[in-house]
C-alpha cells in the first residue's frame, strides 16, 4: 500500500536527518562557518560610525542566508553518491513527497542554524533581545520556510549540473531578496522597540512568499526529476 503524501515526506525527512545525525559533519561545519562569518563582520565594522543595533540585523540575515545555502548544497549532493537518487526515484512514493521531505529536513537543519546564529549575533553585538526573542524566532521561521522551499528545488537542479557549487547561489540569491529584505527590516524594527504592527507589511510579504513558492516549487519539482 502506498503511504500518504505527508507520511512518505516524513520518511524522506527522517532518512536525511538520520544520515546527518550519524555523521554530524555538515551541521557542525555550517555552524562554525556561521559563527566565523559573524565574527568576520566585526572586523569590517566601524563601531563609532554605525551602531551595533543598525548593523546586526543585516549581519544576521546575510550570514543566515549563506549558511542556509551551504546546507542546501548537500541536500541533493548526498543522493549523488552510489546513485542513491535512482533508489529514491524507484520508491513507491510521489515525487512531491520527495520534495516535501527534503524541504522538511532542510527546514529543521536551518532552524538548528538559527538557534545558534541568533544568540551569537545578540552576544557578539551586544543586543538587547529580551522579550523580542520569541517573536524574532517566529519571523525567522517564516522566512526560513520560503528560503528552504526555493533552495531545495534549486539544490535538486544544481546537483545535476556542471558548476553546481556556483550555480546554486547564483540562482537562489535573487529569490532570497524579498526574504532577506522583509526579515531584516522586521528584525531591526523589533530591536528598535517598535510595535509588531509596524512590521506587518513586511511580514505579509514573507507569508505570501512562503505560500506562493512552497506551492510552485512542490508542483514544478516532478519536472526536475523526470528521466
Amino acid at each position: 500500500m502506498k503511504p500518504s503524501l505527508l507520511l512518505s515526506a516524513w520518511f524522506i525527512a527522517r532518512k536525511d536527518l538520520a544520515i546527518e545525525f550519524r555523521t554530524r559533519t555538515a551541521f557542525l561545519a555550517v555552524l562554525v562557518f556561521a559563527v566565523l562569518g559573524i565574527a568576520t563582520f566585526y572586523f569590517a565594522w566601524d563601531a563609532t560610525a554605525v551602531a551595533a543595533i543598525d548593523l546586526a540585523p543585516g549581519v544576521l540575515w546575510v550570514i543566515f542566508t549563506f549558511s542556509g545555502l551551504l546546507s542546501l548544497q548537500r541536500s541533493f549532493g548526498v543522493e549523488l553518491a552510489d546513485r542513491a537518487m535512482d533508489a529514491l526515484l524507484l520508491a513507491p512514493i510521489d515525487r512531491e513527497a520527495i520534495f516535501l521531505g527534503k524541504a522538511l529536513a532542510n527546514l529543521l537543519f536551518v532552524a538548528g542554524i538559527l538557534v545558534v546564529t541568533v544568540p551569537s549575533v545578540a552576544l557578539l553585538y551586544n543586543l538587547p533581545l529580551g522579550r523580542t526573542l520569541p517573536i524574532l524566532f517566529a519571523i525567522a521561521l517564516i522566512a526560513a520556510i520560503g528560503l528552504v522551499a526555493v533552495g531545495t528545488l534549486f539544490s535538486a537542479m544544481a546537483a545535476n549540473t556542471r558548476l553546481a557549487e556556483l550555480l546554486l547561489p547564483m540562482l537562489s540569491l535573487p529569490f532570497f531578496v524579498p526574504i532577506v529584505y522583509g526579515a531584516a527590516q522586521t528584525t531591526s524594527m523589533l530591536l528598535a522597540g517598535r510595535p509588531v504592527a509596524e512590521a506587518w507589511p513586511f511580514m505579509k510579504i514573507l507569508i505570501a512568499f512562503d505560500l506562493v513558492f512552497l506551492t510552485a516549487c512542490t508542483l514544478t519539482f516532478p519536472y526536475i526529476l523526470e528521466e
Binding site: 535573487p174 524579498p178 513586511f202
Partner: peptide, 23 residues
C-alpha cells in the same frame, strides 16, 4: 525542463521584488 522551471519561478518572483522595492 530546468530552464522552463526557472523561467516560471522567476516570473512569480518579479511581483515580490516589485512589492519589496515599492516599500
Amino acid at each position: 525542463r530546468y530552464s522552463a522551471v526557472i523561467g516560471i519561478l522567476a516570473a512569480l518572483l518579479i511581483p515580490f521584488i516589485h512589492l519589496s522595492v515599492y516599500l
